[in-house]
């Protein structure tokens, strides 16, 4: 009975979309955590929320507007940090509060799209359409490809920005790339796990992998595996227990983190 679901197209679509999101988010999240920028993804979800609200208000397709809003916000967050000399999380807090405020005001002014807006907050991976699946997979490929091509530069900049700059690497461009990739990943994730939960996939698999790995390569591979297991395990848990898929994915991810943390304690005991 449970395995029957694996024959349904909607379930397979959910698995494919979720898998690619998890892989992109896990790799990206590792860099964000190590740059002490784990809240950037969470902040950008709030901006994407404002983008969706604007799109629904003007009755246009939400994805491009959310992507534009999150991309621009990522760029301005970097600029504000650089020019205004703020701590990273302060710039994120300013933008995320503003994003949420715009979303709430628009939702209140135009009362008829509240339900639609909520679907972006909580996601619905099992109701994903073909066009959304292809879009998500295409964008996820872009994010994963960029992370592979700039793998060594991104680690160097994350590990020791000053030396990377002295060595002539384009540190500012790499920072902008990472922020843009985060914005794209957030927008892919908003339909799959929802804006409120996408930052969990950005942070939890990476945080779990960091407990065990001794090299960046191993840590990246482990984060990818843990992210993918979270999505596949979470979707199956959702079917078995009749839970919302996005919630089940994040709970599975959290469970994996706890298991890994316990394993680390056992190893060091």
């Amino acid at each position: 009975m449970f395995w029957d679901f694996w024959q349904y197209n909607f379930f397979l679509r959910a698995l494919v979309a979720g898998f690619f999101l998890a892989v992109a988010a896990a790799i990206l999240g590792l860099y964000l955590i190590l740059r002490k920028d784990a809240m950037l993804g969470h902040g950008l979800t709030h901006i994407a929320f404002a983008g969706v609200a604007v799109a629904l208000f003007f009755d246009v397709v939400p994805f491009p507007v959310a992507l534009l809003a999150a991309g621009l916000a990522a760029f301005f967050i970097l600029k504000i940090r650089e020019k205004a000399g703020l701590y990273g999380d302060t710039a994120v807090a300013i933008f995320s509060s503003l994003g949420m405020a715009v979303g709430i005001i628009l939702a209140s002014v135009a009362k008829d799209f509240n339900v639609n807006l909520l679907s972006f907050l909580f996601g619905n991976i099992l109701a994903i359409r073909d066009i959304e699946l292809y879009g998500a997979v295409f964008l996820a490929f872009g994010v994963i490809g960029a992370l592979i091509f700039f793998y060594h530069e991104l680690i160097y900049v994350t590990f020791d920005e000053e030396s990377a700059r002295a060595a002539g690497l384009a540190v500012d461009r790499l920072d902008a790339l990472l922020a843009l990739l985060t914005a794209i990943t957030v927008v892919i994730g908003m339909k799959i796990v929802g804006l409120l939960l996408v930052s969990a996939l950005l942070v939890i698999p990476g945080a779990a992998a960091l407990q065990l790995a001794g090299s960046f390569k191993k840590c990246t591979l482990l984060a990818v595996v843990l992210g993918a297991v979270s999505v596949v395990g979470g979707l199956n848990l959702a079917i078995i227990l009749n839970w919302p898929a996005s919630g089940a994915i994040v709970v599975t991810s959290g469970g994996i983190f706890l298991l890994v943390a316990a394993l680390k304690r056992l190893r060091s005991a």
């Binding site: 060594h152 690497l169 090299s215 960046f216």
Partner: peptide, 14 residues
């Protein structure tokens, strides 16, 4: 999570 070899390899990037 960076190994000694990975750190040294950064010097080759430029």
């Amino acid at each position: 999570p960076v190994s000694v070899a990975e750190v040294v390899s950064f010097g080759l990037l430029p």
